[in-house]
Design a protein around this nucleic acid. Structure first.
Lengths: 213, 213
DNA sequence: CCCCCAGTAGTCAAGTTTGACTAGCGAAGG
DNA sequence: CCTTCGCTAGTCAAACTTGACTACTGGGGG
């Protein structure tokens, strides 16, 4: 699974009603084109596909007010909201070393209630630890790790990464327990979308160094 | 870029001459079907594609000796070897948070000479540090990190992950400096492929827990 | 002797991703 | 007044990925 569906559903949901270009702009605002596969083609494809699957409702809409071809507006359906929450929960608990999904999930984390997030994140650390245990048990030959040669460095990388991720997750749990951020049902939600006419401070920012493409 | 080309080129190269099923088996032996996109369809597609591009040479070959349809054997070309080394070097220096590519690269790391690997890995840590600096500079608003709300946790995750990866890389550099492993031009190479008739101890191992699909 | 099963080797259609391309409009400059 | 530039909004073909499916063989049980 890629991050694109979660991102697009979340973006449409925050707007209430949005056309493709608006979603594309939000994702660029979040820097998502740099750390995920949120490129124009993928976004428009995801919108159409999810509309076909009933997760979004497509309104055939008047020609653009600001130049360019006519645009289609999308609204999230009940089924779409369900799917969004399902994806979000799954992304929060899963440890699959995909930073794009993890990042996207953190971006929407405040759409869930605080207690549920804490439960999910605690489950996450449990899963990471179980995964770590399975790797060290399953991949260390009985005659000691020396038999693996340099291949052992791959397991070492995995274990190292898992430990780091577990530590980060525990830190996040502590901050949330300590009252940080404003979650679902706790008053003013944090809004990370561009309202009509607001300029995008990151849109033309220099590309992320270290970004491979 | 995905890990599939690096994996397939590397597998064919170690065999000298291999058919698709053999490559598929090696990758399963390495556990690659669990931590990368090395599924049958992708492997056969990559073989055909790279043959078309001149990276591999396809021999039309006799019907299988052990049941099943006739099989095509592939041999790596000079151009393919070049591409393999290019991909390997690139994967070793690049920091793009893709664990599958990183894992594949470590798997083939001994195909390069020790000194070059050390150079590449040191370059890697430099790039990670530069990336880290860019993230902290570019994404912290001038009125302090508080303005970001929970979005700041994404940057926190990135920085945390980058630090962990840099630390792992430095550890690997130390071990290699200390004489660990046997690199290109240093006698007996480590061979991680199954020879004809050898059984695969991991082929039917229980699936990796924590594996999302 | 026959049938079915497990293993071998690979194909295929459907879905997804990518990067390049199109096309309409307004504003600025000459 | 005309052209060109940049922004808006999206399409498209080519490549890649996925999971299910096909087809062939040898061997063992009945």
């Amino acid at each position: 699974m890629s991050a694109i569906r979660l991102l697009v559903l979340g973006a449409v949901r925050q707007h209430g009603r949005a056309h493709g270009y608006q979603v594309r702009n939000d994702l660029e605002y979040w820097g998502a084109h740099e750390w995920s596969n949120a490129k124009p083609g993928s976004i428009y494809h995801a919108l159409k596909q999810m509309a076909k699957q009933g997760l979004l409702h497509a309104h055939e809409v008047a020609p653009s007010t600001a130049g360019g071809p006519p645009r289609t507006e999308y609204e999230i359906t009940d089924k779409g909201t369900e799917e969004f929450l399902r994806l979000l929960r799954e992304s929060l608990v899963a440890y699959d070393q995909k930073m794009d999904i993890q990042s996207a999930a953190i971006g929407f984390v405040v759409d869930l209630p605080r207690e549920e997030v804490l439960d999910l994140l605690r489950e996450r650390t449990r899963r990471i630890e179980a995964w770590r245990a399975a790797v060290t048990e399953h991949y260390i030959p009985e005659d000691g790790p020396g038999q693996l040669g340099h291949i052992g460095e791959i397991m070492n990388l995995w274990v190292h990464t898992a430990d780091s991720d577990a530590a980060w997750t525990r830190g996040l749990v502590e901050r949330i327990e300590g009252g940080a951020y404003s979650f679902a049902g706790e008053g003013e939600p944090f809004v990370g979308v561009l309202t009509e006419g607001q300029e995008n401070p990151y849109a033309t920012g220099e590309p992320h160094p270290g970004d491979a493409n």
